[in-house]
Nucleic acid binder design. Sequence first.
DNA 1: AACCGGATTGGCAGCGCTGCCAAAAGGCGA
DNA 2: TCGCCTTTTGGCAGCGCTGCCAATCCGGTT
Lengths: 335, 335
Amino acid sequence: MDDIQTPGRLVTLTDVARAAGLGESTVSRVLRNHGSYSKRAGERVAEAVARLGYVPNRLAGSLAGQGASARLVGVVIPSLANVVFPDLLRGLTAALDAAGIPCVIGVSDYDPDREEALAAALLSWRPAALLLTGLEHNPGTVALARASSVRVVEMIDTDGEGIDAVVGFSNRAVGAASARHLVARGYRRIAYLGHDLAVDLRAAKRLAGFEAALGEAGLALYGKEIRLGPSSPASGRAGLEALLARVPDLDAVYFSNDDMALGGYFACLSAGLAVPGRIALFGFNGLDFAAAMPQPLSTVRTPRLEIGRQAAACLMGDGPKRIDLGFELIEGATA
Amino acid sequence: MDDIQTPGRLVTLTDVARAAGLGESTVSRVLRNHGSYSKRAGERVAEAVARLGYVPNRLAGSLAGQGASARLVGVVIPSLANVVFPDLLRGLTAALDAAGIPCVIGVSDYDPDREEALAAALLSWRPAALLLTGLEHNPGTVALARASSVRVVEMIDTDGEGIDAVVGFSNRAVGAASARHLVARGYRRIAYLGHDLAVDLRAAKRLAGFEAALGEAGLALYGKEIRLGPSSPASGRAGLEALLARVPDLDAVYFSNDDMALGGYFACLSAGLAVPGRIALFGFNGLDFAAAMPQPLSTVRTPRLEIGRQAAACLMGDGPKRIDLGFELIEGATA
DNA sequence: AACCGGATTGGCAGCGCTGCCAAAAGGCGA
DNA sequence: TCGCCTTTTGGCAGCGCTGCCAATCCGGTT
């Protein structure tokens, strides 16, 4: 009863049909549990599939099926180095796995041209949906997305108009809320420490919101340090040291995210600077470690997993086109 | 010259051929730059593609092409919450993007049955290769992988036999090296603090190597604390507090990874315990923050990105079947 | 015994593309 | 100008599957 398969030739549905003594369409119906078939047909197919080790070919299935679109979703994210995006994927895959839909991913490295190229490449797989990050894209990317007539979901940012559906929160509002918190706590000489803004447009929006809110309180940024390269604790530490050398009398620092803030906290510990007595620290993201610190980090928790989940729901069902999931300011003990 | 396309029907290669006044095969050759064609044909096709906004259908292309395998690779990872796996993907996508091959990902949540189901689902897309994590799989997963006759690469772990190609390092050796380091530094009452081992088999292998090396030095684990759930700084902090309550006189702790160790470090800072005077801490992974800490964390740096890169190289070229990328012990200042 | 309606089944075109092969078009020396 | 060889081109089968439609089966009716 051993069914040695000819090397190079995989088992096809036709093989299964022959082995089960049934027609192809019947086997197809059984496998997809679609349409009606007898119990006997079900059993025979199951037996033949198991015996032959049949694995359906979805390339063929999707090509032949309705609308010729694949049960796949294409996802373009700017980076995998920043925890935010794996978290997004986490929420996404958790929700999509339940429906048996895998993600095809592309990493743009924050480059709009790469994003466009990746979008085109992903669309060539005829995915059921295309997920992008943020609202800023090349005109070509937008044109591609529009012409493809697949569902498009833009994640994370809600500050602007989207192509189709948008799921996220307002980065401007986060920045503003952070500024108001610092001002309310009495800080007046507030500096910003961030990673490369030209590249991370969401961070730029947060900073814009932050400065706007400072302005409303009659304040301006007391200092500003931008580090080249991606955010990291090492960059945050070196950045705070540089910032303090230039602007020694600042009393609070708003970081572009928690990783940078952790580095800043380490710098303070090393230099023996009291937090928040001498310097207050404020982050962004609400990562896991923030709550475990000796002094819990003051930060804003963003609904990263939930964005992924809602994006999945959004591209499957016909939910609302625009979902603002908000954020939560965590008072912490560092600001 | 506006080419309004009928809604619902996408532009096909046949449309391009008609618009360019050429045959389908000529257009196909031009688009794939495969075989010979005239300069004139090249220009006409380029013009028609741009004008019509043609996006190739790779479902059809892969189905029709040689071996009917798609320019995709399937990747099954156990989690996206642990930085290790995004880093792996990072190396992988960086190398594959250059070749224009996207990854289709599945997240198994450390469950071998889910892994098997995901492998089957991914194989149904007829990927050019299947990437798995670790060497321990269900028999069904192995059978699927074998029968599919695609290239299989198992990443991260080299302690055992692989299905096809293996890229990683020896987790046992990491554990052993860590133990030897601690013993050489004079620590004798060494405890282990980890997350759920039943689930993270690599962590279990490290612990096994660690205990074996302790044994060679005539020592045994002085204490052991296993936390349910995934690793995190919060878990590390709570875990160290629990461990110290049970085993107050330990002098060093080996953590299952840097996240746990960071939590442990925070616990020590909070409790005012001198590191490493009162307690030495040793981690695993060599994450970014480890070097930025006031006292750089003693840990082992693993070649995560490089594993991804080499795995990509391995599945494209015909490199060696087994690549051990080693690891680097970072002395740090906490142990 | 002939008949009827719903459940089940099989045949086959066709999804969009590629690979094969033969046909057409050039290029060039005699 | 002709024949020969190389380059370029187009036609068409077929990849493995699904959707449509017609054929068949089954149980109970009349």
